[in-house]
Amino acid sequence: MNNLLKRILIVALSNSWIAFPLGKIHAQVSLMAGGNCSNIRDHIPIQGKSAILGYNLGASFQYFPFKGSQNLSLIHELNFVKKGYQQDLDKNYFYRFNYLTFSILGDYAIAKPVSLQGGLEFGGITTTNIKYWRKTYNEFDIGLVAGANVKIAKRLSLYGRLTYGLLPMLDYYDIDEMGNFNKEIHDVKNITYTIGLKFNISNEKNKTHR
């Protein structure tokens, strides 16, 4: 857990250079919460897999570092996200992974209430429902994020996004029925669809510009 927090802090601090050398920053701080539908991508294949529902809770810090373009902003987010999948065999086997994630997103307002977002998510598993999970699953993950944000009220916006995990969660073997080890596998990647609400608790941009 300490290592995981260290790695996420390193990622967060190493990206703070984007925010601080630019002088006065117009920033918005928001709380966010939403539901997600998560599953995995695999080549092995994993029989009977299907998606499960989860949720995410967190906070975001959005700022507008480019003086010339008020449409372009950067967002840093810290979230607790429940991801995973299920396998339907003789019964349902649930694989739930609770991630602490730090995201760096670019946000481009294409029309007044709508903006498109994209970036990277760095995450680490904090807990799961699987016993001895550290002996099986990789702790750290990086995902590509793409989504959109729609402002639905003065302080409230609706967001939807897709997070496409890039790193394999599993390093294992492909073992056949006779017990031959055919190859090493580095497989099982997260994929998560999220929809949620973001509540703006501090809006410096509104105070100074509107």
């Binding site: 092995i44 994993i46 029989q47 396998q87 065999l89 003789d90 086997y93 699987i130 016993k131 001895y132 002996k135 099986t136 699953y137 599993l170 294992y172 073997y173 073992i175 099982v188």
Partner: peptide, 18 residues
């Protein structure tokens, strides 16, 4: 014994060398 669930076939223990 410790049963570490196989990540591909959860009805069986994972192959380990511990």
């Amino acid at each position: 014994g410790i049963v570490i669930q196989d990540p591909i076939e959860p009805r069986l223990p994972k192959y380990t060398e511990d």
